[in-house]
Design a binder for these strands. Structure first.
Lengths: 139, 139
DNA sequence: ATGACTGCAAAGACTTTGCATCTTT
DNA sequence: AAAGATGCAAAGTCTTTGCAGTCAT
């Protein structure tokens, strides 16, 4: 039996929120943001729909930052910068991904490569300017 | 006051175990492995020492795979392959990292870039050969 | 009506932490 | 003796899940 998909107001709201931000939010962020307009939203629903979108290919995880998984509605290949100080995840459209690398790994190692991620780590502008020498939140 | 570091048998064992494998193990893996020779080892100690090594720069995290953080005692820049089927993390020494990219991001975006990671995702040879069409364990 | 979707809360998984004890220096 | 390191267990976070009720088709 094929499992059918039905419309859901919450699901639509979650995807819309994810598409309207470039913050690569966590489940918690989406939950807090959407609770304003959808007071009866449940955190479990956010998690369930994020999983749904990932299986659908609509949304991709950009990894775990500071213990929280972060999501991106832009599934086209692009690299990211992660601030080890504040945890911000920022798109780097000017740093292109090399699609040939997948093939290179595939032929040199014999793996079946689906995609790759290019992620930079360091301090974002805001954190660079902060006079306080605070500890990085990331290892 | 400066905090001094003292020798510890357990700490040495943890680092040695991490250096002797290329499996990019999790804390749990190290704990289970070392419990054989160090029956009184505690999982908390493994976590505490992994944090210690990271702050020291001796060990690096290669990210969270399947909910578990994975560690690498090889801190020289190199790329990785993550099997989305079995969770294996494999070094790709033949796929070099481009050290210039850090500088490129730094000058084009104004961030203070410390390092970058290049990670490929797909199926390893073992999982490719498995006749069973099992679900990927990763999203 | 059927079965997908949700809220709620409990459970699960991984990691951190407090405190008494043991070790290193 | 002083202070770091550990064991143990409790606590803390983030995520998943069971179930009864709700909603879309």
């Amino acid at each position: 039996m094929e499992r059918t998909t039905r419309y859901s107001k919450k699901r639509e709201a979650i995807l819309t929120a994810l598409r309207q931000t470039d913050a690569h939010p966590s489940a918690e962020w989406l939950y807090q943001t959407l609770k304003v307009t959808h007071p009866d939203l449940s955190l479990g629903t956010v998690y369930r729909n994020l999983l749904f979108f990932q299986q659908q290919g609509t949304v991709q995880s950009v990894g775990v930052v500071n213990g929280q998984e972060r999501f991106d509605a832009d599934t086209t290949p692009h690299s990211h910068f992660v601030c080890t100080c504040c945890g911000a995840v920022i798109d780097l459209p000017k740093i292109p991904m090399d699609a040939n690398l997948n093939q290179a790994v595939q032929s040199q190692y014999g793996f079946q490569v689906e995609r790759h991620e290019l992620t930079f780590y360091g301090k974002c502008k805001t954190c660079m300017q902060s006079k306080h020498f605070e500890e990085d939140v990331l290892s």
